[in-house]
Simulated scan of single mutants.
Amino acid sequence: MSVSTTSSRTVERLYVLDAGIAVAPDRSVYTPGKWQGEQVMLTCNAYLIRRAGQWTLWDTGIDDAIGRESGGRVIAHNIRGIVVRTIACQLADIGITPADVSRVILSHAHFDHVGNARLFTHATWHMQRREHEAMFGPDYAQHGYMPPLYADLARAQVELMDGDHDIFGDGSVQVISTPGHTLGHCSLLVRLPKSGPVLLSGDVAHDSYNMVHRCVPTMNADAEASRQSMARIAAIVHAEEAQLWLNHDTVQSATISHAPAYFD
């Protein structure tokens, strides 16, 4: 499926939620051959979309429970997760609860994206079929997945996607297949009536340096697919004249207003 260039502009608001902080002891994991041994801090974000009075969440962040642990916890890939403000508290600031979220779209199943799955088992979940197979398959550990974080999804309604997918059928919220970081990784294009198109990268590239230089983290599932996905995202951003929000780019994240502020 090609990316639609038409939209009925039905997205009303886009909120950026603080989904935690990831601290990695060796930056060169993300930039092989450069910055070896340097600690790096990565911002994590989740995104809340209001459309036609309903709420859709893109990713769920690091497990809120980690907010009760001083200094956070080393979770996967030797990365420490830290939660300063929980997703539940930020939803409350907006005036809703997790129960009000009717749809969750998952970029991929690493701990900083699927950590609060248990809060949204009532919702309809959208994820790539290849991601779902890896999450619940016998080799989940080699992909860095932690099944206890998303075990509750076994009783949730899950709609599997095979590649690109127009969530509402009007071009306003489009899943873009960008495999490489994981087998079923995807990104999201959101069209806003005033702010224009915004492309939420997921982990197609962890920051602007990686995007510009096409750096492939050592943890990625497929290096060549990763480079192809970065090239695809760059092409879509150019064609759409879209903003590209890189999920883990600490510098960029500091320039983007977070909830309860919103983009429309």
Rank of each mutant, 00 (worst) to 15 (best):
M1A: 14
S2C: 09
T5K: 14
V11S: 03
A19G: 02
I21Q: 04
I21T: 10
V23N: 13
V29T: 15
G33P: 05
Q39S: 15
V40Q: 04
I49L: 14
T56Y: 02
D64W: 00
D64F: 01
R68L: 02
R68C: 00
E69N: 00
V83F: 00
T86L: 03
T86Q: 07
A92P: 01
A92H: 11
I94V: 12
P98G: 10
I105E: 02
S107W: 01
H110A: 01
H110T: 05
R130Y: 04
D139T: 08
Y145A: 01
Y150A: 12
A154G: 12
F168S: 12
G169E: 09
G169N: 11
P179Q: 01
H181G: 02
G184Q: 10
S187H: 01
L188F: 08
L189F: 04
R191W: 06
R191Y: 07
R191I: 09
V198Y: 02
D203W: 09
S208G: 03
M211G: 09
V212T: 11
P217D: 12
A221C: 13
S226H: 15
S229N: 08
A234P: 00
A234M: 07
A239W: 11
N247F: 02
H248V: 00
T250K: 07
A259V: 12
A259L: 13
Y262W: 15
